[in-house]
Amino acid sequence: MNHRSGFGVQVLLLAALYLFLYGPILYVIYVSFQIDSIWPFPPTLTLEHHTDLWQRRDYHAALWNSVTIGFGTGLIATLFATLAAMAILKYRSPGSGLVAGLFLAPLFIAPILIGISSLMFSRTVLGMPGSIFGATLANSTYATAFALLVVLAQFARYDWRLDDAAMVFGARPWRTFWEITLPITWPAMLGAFIVSFLLAFNNLEISFYNLGATPTLPTLAWGALRHGISAELYALAAIINFAVFALFTVLYLLLRLGTIRID
């Protein structure tokens, strides 16, 4: 295989990957605006499915619950991940490896195991029935790992000696953080928040076991899907995909912004 054809094959593979990943999503979005959702050709545009979805009260509550879980998880995961990443990169202390291992461990544990173990733990040991709170905590363990990856990748580009410089010129630790660290690294933190928010917002396998009877969008969708795919699910999928893409655009811009020139 010579260089040119190798390059061509790779371009094709990449294009096929994006088609594979986005084809179904784009199709669902397309279908959600069609009257005939089985064979929507030629297109017959309608907003009917979206307005139907909008009038379903159960989806309102579920949306609110999902946002709550996403927000809570985003805050917890970002806070813990930021603190840990700063400590690991700034102090390079013995024990960094151990801490990083603990924080990244959820990546190597199946989500369903996190779901059932936290269910058993909170019900039996803590005596708490399923709730949004429990689901948020369980999601946070998983999301912290992803948040740490985002934050570490961005913080690695930050020169921690800038903190030293600020301290020498009279800034106390908090002031140093506020004046120097935060203004340069906030995109990393917001990026970590977005990723953990989305993970928890859309999570099924962890949330499912910890929610008790509280509905969220993924659990409602799960319930609906058991009776076969329906028009309101297309609309839901379309809206959520739009939201994810919008937040992902923000994330991309943040990661770009995060590369402040330190030269």
Binding site: D159, R161, L162, D164, A165, A166, M167, V168, F169, G170, A171, R172, I180, P183, I184, I260, R261, I262
Partner: peptide, 19 residues
């Protein structure tokens, strides 16, 4: 701590605050 010593310092690679 460094912030209470009242000294000045010029760092290697300058370490100017980029923002």
């Amino acid at each position: 701590p460094p912030y209470r010593r009242g000294i000045g310092m010029v760092f290697q690679d300058f370490l100017l605050f980029p923002h």
